[in-house]
């Protein structure tokens, strides 16, 4: 009963919200130019399926590459900083700066430097994805139970063996947590940067729909963007389950 209600209640709440929305749009005279009913933007979702699919693939490519670049750069750096207090002190302000940087404001500059297209998006998404993975990687590699190191050293483990069997497994939960956070940030940054400065992708479709006064398409795009968020989160949960089976994710 418990597990059944656990899956039933969220579905019910979504159905209730959509029903109230549909009713309000139809019977309270709310214009489709202000708030289109779910049935209206679902129709737009179907009618615009080809362009939404094509644009989603473009956005997903940018997310994949940008997130990959950010994560690949962050994890080794996190390892180095986690093991070197001097490096941590040296780079502290750089990391804080990167974290507080208003990233979307960089978009027009990146367009001038790299043009419209994948590179500008990837750079911005990578910057957005980099910091959470870095911070969690530092924490993961830094805060290790010292007794584990004593044991491995007394057992004669090499540095590589210590890394592979002690440090990495201990840091993995933190790293995966950082990856999950940064993946959602990557989705948001991708769509926002496409809305603001790109000439393709899901955000660009939303921008075009706004300028064409096509609100159903705007909502259809938001729906697809949300589904992408859910999708990548689900993929990351599978990765987490594979990497950390003991967590039972």
């Amino acid at each position: 009963m418990g597990s059944r209600s656990a899956s039933f209640l969220p579905t019910l709440s979504v159905v209730v919200v959509l029903s109230v929305w549909e009713f309000a749009s139809r019977y309270l005279g709310i214009s489709a130019h202000i708030l289109p009913a779910p049935s209206v933007f679902c129709r737009s979702l179907v009618e615009n399926a080809p362009i939404l699919t094509r644009s989603s693939l473009i956005t997903l490519q940018a997310i994949g590459v940008g997130f990959g670049v950010g994560a690949v750069a962050a994890i080794p750096l996190g390892f180095s900083i986690g093991l070197s207090p001097a490096l941590e002190r040296s780079l502290y302000y750089v990391i804080v700066l990167l974290n507080t940087l208003p990233k979307v404001a960089l978009a027009p500059l990146l367009v001038v430097w790299f043009g419209h297209g994948l590179v500008s998006k990837v750079v911005l998404i990578a910057i957005g994805a980099f910091v959470p993975v870095l911070v969690d990687s530092i924490a993961g590699f830094k805060y290790l139970d010292r007794r584990l190191l004593y044991v491995s050293r007394s057992a004669g483990a090499s540095l590589f063996q210590t890394f592979l069997f002690i440090r990495l497994p201990a840091a993995l939960p933190h790293i995966v947590s950082g990856l999950k956070t940064s993946l959602i940030i990557a989705v948001t940054v991708a769509i926002v940067v496409e809305y603001v400065a790109a000439t393709d992708g899901l955000g660009f479709v939303a921008m075009r729909a706004v300028t064409n006064d096509d609100l159903p398409l705007v909502f259809a795009t938001i729906t697809v963007g949300t589904l992408i968020g859910f999708g990548v989160n689900a993929v990351m949960s599978v990765v987490e389950w594979l990497l950390l089976p003991w967590k039972g994710a």
Partner: peptide, 19 residues
């Protein structure tokens, strides 16, 4: 032909040699 994102951005792209 490339789509643009505002006159200012287009002129900057021209000036930077991106187009």
């Amino acid at each position: 032909i490339e789509q643009g994102r505002g006159s200012g951005s287009t002129v900057q792209l021209v000036a930077a040699g991106q187009t």
